[in-house]
Protein backbone atom coordinates (compact mmCIF):
# COMPACT_ATOMS: atom_id res chain seq x y z
CA UNK A 1 0.00 0.00 0.00
CA UNK A 2 1.35 3.39 -0.94
CA UNK A 3 1.36 6.51 1.18
CA UNK A 4 -1.21 7.92 -1.19
CA UNK A 5 -3.51 4.98 -0.49
CA UNK A 6 -3.02 5.47 3.25
CA UNK A 7 -3.92 9.13 2.94
CA UNK A 8 -6.96 8.26 0.83
CA UNK A 9 -8.16 5.75 3.43
CA UNK A 10 -7.59 8.28 6.19
CA UNK A 11 -9.75 10.77 4.27
CA UNK A 12 -12.37 8.08 3.61
CA UNK A 13 -12.61 7.07 7.26
CA UNK A 14 -12.71 10.70 8.33
CA UNK A 15 -15.74 11.23 6.09
CA UNK A 16 -17.29 7.91 7.03
CA UNK A 17 -16.89 8.90 10.68
CA UNK A 18 -15.12 5.84 12.03
CA UNK A 19 -11.99 7.53 13.39
CA UNK A 20 -11.61 8.12 17.12
CA UNK A 21 -11.65 11.62 18.63
CA UNK A 22 -7.89 12.07 18.52
CA UNK A 23 -7.56 10.95 14.90
CA UNK A 24 -10.51 13.12 13.87
CA UNK A 25 -8.99 16.17 15.51
CA UNK A 26 -5.67 15.48 13.82
CA UNK A 27 -7.25 15.17 10.36
CA UNK A 28 -9.40 18.26 10.95
CA UNK A 29 -6.20 20.18 11.71
CA UNK A 30 -4.12 18.71 8.89
CA UNK A 31 -6.67 19.35 6.15
CA UNK A 32 -6.09 23.08 6.49
CA UNK A 33 -2.41 22.80 5.65
CA UNK A 34 -2.46 19.76 3.33
CA UNK A 35 -4.28 20.44 0.07
CA UNK A 36 -3.91 16.79 -1.03
CA UNK A 37 -5.71 15.59 2.07
CA UNK A 38 -8.36 18.28 1.70
CA UNK A 39 -9.03 17.24 -1.91
CA UNK A 40 -9.32 13.58 -0.92
CA UNK A 41 -11.78 14.48 1.85
CA UNK A 42 -13.92 16.52 -0.53
CA UNK A 43 -13.95 13.64 -3.03
CA UNK A 44 -15.15 11.22 -0.34
CA UNK A 45 -17.82 13.67 0.81
CA UNK A 46 -19.10 13.64 -2.76
CA UNK A 47 -18.99 9.85 -3.01
CA UNK A 48 -20.73 9.12 0.27
CA UNK A 49 -22.99 12.19 0.46
CA UNK A 50 -25.96 10.50 -1.22
CA UNK A 51 -26.16 8.10 1.74
CA UNK A 52 -27.63 10.99 3.71
CA UNK A 53 -30.68 10.82 1.47
CA UNK A 54 -32.25 8.12 3.55
CA UNK A 55 -32.18 10.18 6.72
CA UNK A 56 -35.74 10.85 7.81
CA UNK A 57 -36.34 14.59 8.28
CA UNK A 58 -37.32 15.57 11.82
CA UNK A 59 -39.15 18.79 12.74
CA UNK A 60 -37.32 20.84 15.38
CA UNK A 61 -38.98 22.18 18.53
CA UNK A 62 -40.48 25.58 17.78
CA UNK A 63 -38.07 27.59 19.96
CA UNK A 64 -34.89 26.39 18.27
CA UNK A 65 -34.67 29.15 15.69
CA UNK A 66 -35.20 31.82 18.32
CA UNK A 67 -32.32 30.40 20.39
CA UNK A 68 -30.06 30.42 17.34
CA UNK A 69 -30.97 34.04 16.61
CA UNK A 70 -30.32 35.05 20.21
CA UNK A 71 -26.90 33.43 20.06
CA UNK A 72 -26.07 35.29 16.85
CA UNK A 73 -27.20 38.55 18.47
CA UNK A 74 -25.00 37.85 21.48
CA UNK A 75 -22.00 37.06 19.27
CA UNK A 76 -22.45 40.26 17.32
CA UNK A 77 -22.72 42.36 20.47
CA UNK A 78 -19.61 40.73 21.83
CA UNK A 79 -17.75 41.53 18.65
CA UNK A 80 -18.84 45.15 18.80
CA UNK A 81 -17.73 45.34 22.45
CA UNK A 82 -14.35 43.88 21.73
CA UNK A 83 -13.74 46.50 19.05
CA UNK A 84 -14.53 49.08 21.68
CA UNK A 85 -12.12 47.42 24.13
CA UNK A 86 -9.40 47.69 21.53
CA UNK A 87 -9.85 51.41 21.58
CA UNK A 88 -9.52 51.46 25.35
CA UNK A 89 -6.31 49.51 25.01
CA UNK A 90 -4.93 52.09 22.67
CA UNK A 91 -5.49 54.78 25.24
CA UNK A 92 -3.90 52.76 28.03
CA UNK A 93 -0.90 52.02 25.86
CA UNK A 94 -0.34 55.69 25.59
CA UNK A 95 1.24 56.08 29.01
CA UNK A 96 3.60 53.23 28.47
CA UNK A 97 4.54 54.67 25.16
CA UNK A 98 5.37 58.10 26.47
CA UNK A 99 7.66 56.72 29.12
CA UNK A 100 9.36 54.62 26.54
CA UNK A 101 9.84 57.20 23.89
CA UNK A 102 11.99 59.48 25.95
CA UNK A 103 14.18 56.80 27.44
CA UNK A 104 15.08 54.16 24.93
CA UNK A 105 14.68 55.97 21.70
CA UNK A 106 16.60 59.02 22.72
CA UNK A 107 19.36 57.08 24.32
CA UNK A 108 20.16 55.12 21.24
CA UNK A 109 20.25 57.78 18.60
CA UNK A 110 22.00 60.94 19.47
CA UNK A 111 21.01 63.54 16.95
CA UNK A 112 17.49 62.58 16.56
CA UNK A 113 14.34 62.54 18.46
CA UNK A 114 12.44 59.61 17.30
CA UNK A 115 8.97 59.96 18.14
CA UNK A 116 6.76 57.65 18.95
CA UNK A 117 4.75 55.13 17.83
CA UNK A 118 2.00 53.40 18.27
CA UNK A 119 0.33 50.82 16.75
CA UNK A 120 -2.08 48.75 18.49
CA UNK A 121 -2.80 45.16 18.09
CA UNK A 122 -6.43 44.06 17.89
CA UNK A 123 -7.38 41.37 20.39
CA UNK A 124 -9.66 39.55 17.97
CA UNK A 125 -7.73 36.79 16.29
CA UNK A 126 -9.62 37.33 13.10
CA UNK A 127 -9.79 41.04 13.66
CA UNK A 128 -8.67 43.72 11.35
CA UNK A 129 -4.96 43.96 10.79
CA UNK A 130 -5.07 47.72 10.66
CA UNK A 131 -2.96 49.88 12.88
CA UNK A 132 -2.72 53.57 13.26
CA UNK A 133 0.00 55.82 14.59
CA UNK A 134 -0.51 59.47 15.34
CA UNK A 135 2.41 61.85 15.30
CA UNK A 136 2.00 64.74 17.64
CA UNK A 137 3.65 68.08 17.61
CA UNK A 138 4.09 70.01 20.85
CA UNK A 139 1.69 67.66 22.55
CA UNK A 140 -1.06 69.70 21.00
CA UNK A 141 -2.38 68.77 17.63
CA UNK A 142 -1.60 65.69 15.64
CA UNK A 143 0.73 66.45 12.79
CA UNK A 144 0.48 63.22 10.83
CA UNK A 145 -1.46 60.02 10.99
CA UNK A 146 0.00 56.80 9.68
CA UNK A 147 -2.20 53.78 9.06
CA UNK A 148 -0.81 50.39 8.22
CA UNK A 149 -2.75 47.41 6.95
CA UNK A 150 -0.73 44.33 7.81
CA UNK A 151 -2.66 41.95 5.61
CA UNK A 152 -1.45 43.57 2.43
CA UNK A 153 1.35 45.66 3.93
CA UNK A 154 -0.07 48.87 2.58
CA UNK A 155 0.54 52.07 4.45
CA UNK A 156 -1.02 55.45 4.18
CA UNK A 157 0.32 58.59 5.72
CA UNK A 158 -1.71 61.72 5.84
CA UNK A 159 -0.91 65.16 7.20
CA UNK A 160 -3.34 66.49 9.77
CA UNK A 161 -1.92 69.85 10.82
CA UNK A 162 1.51 69.47 9.24
CA UNK A 163 2.25 71.85 6.37
CA UNK A 164 4.86 71.63 3.69
CA UNK A 165 7.92 73.70 4.66
CA UNK A 166 10.02 75.73 2.28
CA UNK A 167 13.36 74.03 1.70
CA UNK A 168 12.66 71.18 4.10
CA UNK A 169 11.38 67.64 3.81
CA UNK A 170 9.66 65.30 6.21
CA UNK A 171 11.20 61.87 6.43
CA UNK A 172 9.60 58.74 7.89
CA UNK A 173 11.78 56.35 9.92
CA UNK A 174 11.30 52.90 11.34
CA UNK A 175 13.12 51.49 14.31
CA UNK A 176 13.00 47.93 15.59
CA UNK A 177 15.34 45.74 17.61
CA UNK A 178 15.81 43.34 14.74
CA UNK A 179 16.89 46.19 12.46
CA UNK A 180 19.79 47.17 14.73
CA UNK A 181 20.23 50.17 17.01
CA UNK A 182 19.62 52.89 14.43
CA UNK A 183 16.44 54.04 12.74
CA UNK A 184 16.09 53.09 9.11
CA UNK A 185 14.56 55.39 6.53
CA UNK A 186 11.18 54.37 5.16
CA UNK A 187 11.11 57.25 2.76
CA UNK A 188 10.97 60.99 2.22
CA UNK A 189 7.51 62.48 1.93
CA UNK A 190 6.88 64.30 -1.34
CA UNK A 191 5.75 67.91 -1.66
CA UNK A 192 2.15 66.84 -1.05
CA UNK A 193 3.32 65.11 2.13
CA UNK A 194 2.61 61.68 0.67
CA UNK A 195 4.64 58.51 0.55
CA UNK A 196 4.39 55.41 -1.62
CA UNK A 197 1.77 53.10 -0.10
CA UNK A 198 4.02 50.08 -0.57
CA UNK A 199 6.99 51.59 1.25
CA UNK A 200 6.68 49.06 4.09
CA UNK A 201 6.17 46.07 1.85
CA UNK A 202 9.57 44.53 2.49
CA UNK A 203 9.04 44.42 6.27
CA UNK A 204 7.66 41.42 8.05
CA UNK A 205 4.21 42.09 9.61
CA UNK A 206 5.44 40.86 13.01
CA UNK A 207 8.29 43.34 12.89
CA UNK A 208 5.92 46.14 11.91
CA UNK A 209 3.75 45.39 14.94
CA UNK A 210 6.74 45.89 17.26
CA UNK A 211 8.38 48.74 15.43
CA UNK A 212 8.58 52.38 16.35
CA UNK A 213 8.03 55.02 13.69
CA UNK A 214 9.24 58.58 13.67
CA UNK A 215 9.06 61.60 11.42
CA UNK A 216 11.88 64.10 11.34
CA UNK A 217 12.33 67.38 9.58
CA UNK A 218 15.27 67.18 7.17
CA UNK A 219 16.94 69.26 4.50
CA UNK A 220 15.05 69.17 1.22
CA UNK A 221 15.28 65.69 -0.31
CA UNK A 222 15.92 63.91 2.97
CA UNK A 223 18.63 63.32 5.50
CA UNK A 224 22.12 63.63 3.99
CA UNK A 225 23.56 61.20 6.56
CA UNK A 226 21.12 58.32 6.41
CA UNK A 227 20.10 59.06 9.96
CA UNK A 228 17.64 61.60 11.30
CA UNK A 229 19.38 64.97 11.67
CA UNK A 230 16.61 67.47 12.33
CA UNK A 231 13.93 67.91 14.95
CA UNK A 232 11.39 65.16 15.10
CA UNK A 233 7.71 65.27 15.63
CA UNK A 234 6.46 63.06 18.27
CA UNK A 235 3.78 60.54 18.26
CA UNK A 236 0.68 60.02 20.15
CA UNK A 237 -1.95 57.32 20.19
CA UNK A 238 -5.44 57.82 19.00
CA UNK A 239 -8.46 55.57 18.92
CA UNK A 240 -9.34 54.42 15.46
CA UNK A 241 -13.12 54.29 15.70
CA UNK A 242 -13.96 57.93 16.21
CA UNK A 243 -10.38 58.62 15.33
CA UNK A 244 -10.83 61.57 13.10
CA UNK A 245 -8.22 64.21 13.55
CA UNK A 246 -7.98 66.51 16.46
CA UNK A 247 -9.50 64.54 19.25
CA UNK A 248 -7.53 65.08 22.41
CA UNK A 249 -7.04 62.01 24.57
Amino acid sequence: MTDRDDLDMLAAEFVLGTLDARERASVAMRRHSEPDLEALIVAWEQRLGPLAEEVVPVAPTPGLYKRIEQKINALEEKQARSTHDDNDRVISLHKRLRRWQWSTALASASAMMLMAVLIFQPTQEQGPQSFVAVFQENDQQPAFMLSVDLTNRQMHIRPVTAEPMQGKSYQLWIKADSLGPNPRSVGVLNENLKLDRTALRSYDPELLKEATFGISVEPEGGSPTGQPTGPAIHGYLYPTLDGESGQQL
Binding site: V58, A59, R67, I68, K71, L75
Partner: peptide, 26 residues
Protein backbone atom coordinates in the same frame (compact mmCIF):
# COMPACT_ATOMS: atom_id res chain seq x y z
CA UNK B 1 -35.56 18.95 9.31
CA UNK B 2 -32.83 17.30 7.27
CA UNK B 3 -30.01 18.42 9.54
CA UNK B 4 -31.86 17.54 12.71
CA UNK B 5 -32.74 14.13 11.27
CA UNK B 6 -29.06 13.59 10.42
CA UNK B 7 -27.80 14.61 13.85
CA UNK B 8 -30.55 12.84 15.79
CA UNK B 9 -29.84 9.58 14.04
CA UNK B 10 -26.20 9.80 15.16
CA UNK B 11 -26.77 11.03 18.71
CA UNK B 12 -30.05 9.25 19.46
CA UNK B 13 -30.99 11.92 21.99
CA UNK B 14 -33.38 14.69 21.08
CA UNK B 15 -32.14 17.40 23.45
CA UNK B 16 -28.51 16.74 22.62
CA UNK B 17 -29.27 16.70 18.91
CA UNK B 18 -30.95 20.12 19.11
CA UNK B 19 -27.98 21.54 21.01
CA UNK B 20 -25.69 20.35 18.24
CA UNK B 21 -28.00 21.61 15.48
CA UNK B 22 -28.07 24.98 17.25
CA UNK B 23 -24.28 25.14 17.04
CA UNK B 24 -24.35 23.88 13.45
CA UNK B 25 -26.49 26.84 12.35
CA UNK B 26 -24.15 29.22 14.15
Amino acid sequence: PKLLGTVLRILNNRGWAEEVVHDVYI
